[in-house]
Amino acid sequence: MAAAPERMPLHHRMLASVGEPVIHVADTVKGIMRTFALTLHYTLRGRKRWDAIFEQLHEIGNRSVIFIAFTLGFLGMILIYQAGYQAMKITGDLQLLGGLFLQLLLRVFAPTITAMMLATRVGSGMAAQIGSMVVTEQVDALRMCAAQPVDYLVVPRFLASIVMSVVLTIFAVLVSYLAGAMVANTAFGVNFYTFFDMSFVGWFDVNICLTKALVFGATIPVIACQAGLIVTGGSEGVGQATTTAVVNCSLAVVILDFVISGLGYVVLNLL
């Protein structure tokens, strides 16, 4: 793409190899921010198309339930297995297992892994769908009918994703917790009554869980749709966009998770 890189002197090439990714990242972030601003603009101003929102609620929510149940269920089993094994080895005391597990689930694992799964399933799906619409000129046709693509395509996904991310995260907590309880009971003989110990969980944990779910739910559709809207070329472009969507969404989840966890830690210390 760049003109004959081997003709450039060495220090130019070194600068270019640093600068190119930086510019690329900056462009991507700028594009995402613009789409996000437009999405907010149309969310507040445009008319709500409830049928489209319900369709997306179904698409994002109902069709992810089995996937989320499966993956988060396994996650609960894995975590309890590891934690229980360690606790047996060190203290032999499994009284706190359930309570601490629920707290950890709320603080990190449920919102983060649910969001990663949404990025995987929903993010890639959105990018693939919108990308295909771009290459088949459907997005141009929308614009010719005076329907703004962001208003028409992104806003319903944005609203539906926020709602469903919260709902699915709560669902994920339940599934993981129950799956963990099963393993704790069968592998370590912890009885359910001891395991379902809510004494550790406070408002702080619930709030941080829901905040994360909300933020991730708002981020994923914007990034995924942005990846879809900038597709050029045929099937190659669509594949590329889908990949970009998964990676960017997942990275955004990890970065935001770090930011919110850090803020949460600061808040917890102030309390």
Partner: peptide, 15 residues
Amino acid sequence: GGAVGVGRSVNASVV
């Protein structure tokens, strides 16, 4: 199934 199919495949693959 063309471009649409490629998108669908990638989605299924990551899931």
